[in-house]
Simulated scan of single mutants.
Amino acid sequence: MNIFVLEDQWIEQQYLKKVLERISTRLHLTSFNITIWSSAEELVTNLPTPSVQNVYLLDLEINGDKKAGLKLSQLIRQNDILATIIFITVHDEFLPTTYSYRTEALDFIAKDQDNIEERLSKDFQFVVEKINHGPQPRPVFKTAAGYLRINFANILYLEPNPTNSHQALLHTVDHRVITVTGTLNELEKQFPTLFRSHRHFLINPTLVVSVNLGNHTLQFKGESRTYPFSRLRTKELLKNLKELNQPFQII
């Protein structure tokens, strides 16, 4: 699980870090990475790969801007529909305002309460349940016949259509090949949960089970064939796979 804290006060940063570490121990979370940012600009510059594993703890007021956290939450939600957003702030009068930003925050915790750790612990229990049992997203692709909604878990990869530069071929885990509208560049922007491993491949990273660093190939779950990935994308590929918090082998 990846925790991103936006808080500009050092004392509050250290307090939240200790609270989160205790919660991690209590819930037996073996992978629990905490990153703390003091400004919204820093966090925006370093927005992670979209993932259900991402949890954002945002203060509303940052460096004098009382709505900095709200503005940032809107950007986060546009980029990362699967992430969890939690507000922790002294400005509880802004609670009704959060709904107009349509960020679907999980919780809104006032800093002057004495049950912050208890609230956060319950929130993280919910996040764990969402990760373990939540429904998979179902992306919608445009096709010549209309629109196709498909479970994310059924997508293996996409590659360019050699006969039409404005289309791509979507390969599924059950070996179907579906022609969809859009170039890989366009589809990469439209579906950020997919990963551009190569100029000719847009993959589902959750299905990768092994990465061969010697010949720069990867293998999907249930597939005997291997697929190339760009040498230049090696570091980003490994970072993406590690953030998913699921097992894979490096060869």
Rank of each mutant, 00 (worst) to 15 (best):
I11S: 10
E12N: 02
Y15H: 04
Y15G: 00
L16V: 07
K17L: 04
K17E: 11
K17N: 14
L20T: 05
E21I: 11
R22P: 01
S24I: 01
S24C: 12
S24K: 07
S24P: 01
T25F: 11
T25Y: 03
L27E: 12
L27Q: 13
L27P: 00
L27F: 05
L29K: 09
L29P: 00
T30V: 13
T30Q: 13
T30G: 02
F32E: 04
F32L: 12
N33M: 06
I34L: 07
T35N: 12
T35S: 13
I36N: 04
A40R: 12
E41F: 04
E42T: 06
E42V: 03
T45M: 07
N46W: 05
P48G: 11
P48C: 09
T49V: 11
V52R: 10
V55R: 06
Y56M: 05
Y56H: 08
Y56W: 12
L57S: 02
D59Y: 03
L60H: 02
L60P: 04
L60G: 04
E61G: 05
E61N: 15
N63L: 03
G64E: 03
K67S: 04
G69A: 10
G69Y: 00
L70E: 02
L70C: 02
K71C: 05
L75C: 02
L75V: 15
N79Y: 02
I81Y: 04
L82R: 12
T84R: 01
F87G: 02
H91F: 15
F94Y: 15
F94E: 07
L95M: 13
L95S: 09
P96L: 07
P96S: 04
P96Y: 05
T98G: 03
T103G: 00
A105D: 01
D107L: 00
F108V: 14
K111F: 15
K111M: 12
N115T: 14
I116D: 00
I116E: 11
I116Y: 04
E117G: 11
E118V: 00
E118H: 07
E118G: 00
R119T: 09
R119F: 09
L120N: 08
S121T: 15
K122S: 15
D123H: 06
D123R: 06
D123K: 03
F126S: 08
V127P: 05
I131Y: 08
N132T: 06
H133M: 10
P135W: 05
P137R: 05
P139E: 07
P139W: 13
T143C: 08
G146I: 14
G146C: 12
G146H: 11
L148K: 14
R149M: 13
I150M: 13
N151Y: 09
L156G: 09
